[in-house]
Simulated assay, not measured.
Amino acid sequence: MRINRSIRVGIGVMALAVVASACGGGEEKSASQSASEGKLTVGIKYDQPGLGLRNPDGSFSGFDVEVAEYVAGKLGVAPENIEFKESPSAQRETLIQNGEVDYIVATYSITDARKEKVDFAGPYFIAGQSLLVKSDNTDITGPDSLNGGKKLCSVTGSTPAQKVKDTYAQDVQLQEFDTYSACVEALRNGAVDAVTTDDIILAGYAAQYPGELKVVGEPFTEERYGIGLAKGDDETRAKINDAIDAMIADGSWERAFNETVGASGYPIPAPPTVDRY
């Protein structure tokens, strides 16, 4: 029996469609779809005391963790059904674009460059870049004192690292590590003179090493922390924005801050206004 050419072509197209579907060629799952199935994968930092920290017993704590869990709850997912995934600064966009996380809550500053690759809900917090030094250091008092070839550490792919490159690179030796905890260890052992990132992050490290480290100077940038998610996932972004507003309104935002960051002595700021772009 002869098969007509148009039928053969149709069968071939159908076969290709089946193969493409089997290889994951279909539409990516949104965070809302993941939530509707009862589970979420959320990116956080593992090494930031008071914000995103993996504890020795394998649990997680910090303000970002509290925000992540509150948002998940508003999306209908209980804390025990959240899988936390480490999200280093340089990998955050890739993790979102590859669908490895549903959203990221990891001191993730909202910038125009990042918004070309991912979307943001929030901000849920506003911080400012500052400097961490040893407690007995009297030479470094702010970014303008980073002269004479001072060694400064920050994290690869972070906003603070880029700020230093753009503004102070001509007179400072910038060293970039994968994590802030590595920078802090370099500071403690004298390999660098200072660490730079957002003041709220540095306050957590100063609290972790009382009497050994201190935050100096006034913040010299404004960092608006957002919750990163897949570009074009407008449905989930709107839901997360609603969750942030609810967290602020019902007192959970302030309570979470006091129970996590508050111990460092970092003063609680006014809650931010969500940007519904």
Rank of each mutant, 00 (worst) to 15 (best):
S34N: 12
A263I: 08
K239Y: 03
F60S: 07
V274G: 05
D64Y: 01
S154W: 04
A206G: 11
L95F: 07
L146T: 03
Y124D: 04
R188V: 07
S135L: 07
G228W: 04
E93T: 12
G228M: 08
K117Q: 14
R92F: 03
G24S: 10
T111E: 09
T141A: 12
G38I: 02
V101M: 05
K115Y: 04
P219I: 01
E223Q: 12
E86P: 00
K134H: 08
A113N: 08
E223W: 01
F177D: 12
V13F: 00
V67F: 06
A22D: 00
I3E: 00
V101T: 12
R188T: 10
Q170S: 14
T196M: 13
R92P: 06
A243Q: 09
P88A: 08
Q97A: 10
K231W: 10
E37R: 07
V133S: 10
G10A: 14
A17M: 15
E80W: 05
E27V: 15
G122Y: 09
I227W: 04
S6Y: 11
S135P: 05
E218N: 13
G122R: 14
N137G: 07
C23M: 15
P269N: 09
A207N: 15
F60K: 01
P49R: 01
G265N: 10
R188I: 13
G76N: 09
T41F: 00
P267Y: 01
A263N: 06
D166T: 05
P160Q: 03
V67P: 05
T196P: 04
T221L: 03
Y209N: 15
T221K: 03
E185C: 04
W253Q: 04
E223M: 12
A78M: 07
G50R: 13
P143I: 08
E176D: 01
A249S: 12
S30T: 15
D136E: 10
V195L: 14
A169F: 08
R5E: 00
Y124H: 09
Q48E: 13
K115D: 06
K39A: 09
Q33S: 02
K151I: 14
N4R: 15
Y108E: 11
C23P: 00
S145C: 04
A256M: 04
V18S: 01
N241F: 07
N137Q: 13
E80G: 13
E86T: 10
V195Q: 09
T179Q: 12
D242Q: 12
E222G: 03
D178G: 15
F63I: 06
V216E: 04
I44N: 02
S6L: 15
D242E: 13
A17W: 02
V105D: 09
D112G: 07
L146K: 04
V155N: 03
A182W: 01
V215G: 12
E27C: 02
S158H: 05
G211W: 08
E223R: 02
E37S: 09
I7Q: 02
G99V: 06
T41K: 14
G190H: 11
T159A: 12
E28A: 14
D198P: 08
I227K: 11
I7E: 02
N98I: 00
S36Q: 06
A72F: 06
T156W: 07
D171C: 08
E235F: 00
T41P: 00
S89H: 06
N81M: 06
G26L: 11
T221A: 11
Y46E: 13
G217Q: 09
D136C: 05
S21V: 11
V195D: 08
G142L: 11
D144R: 09
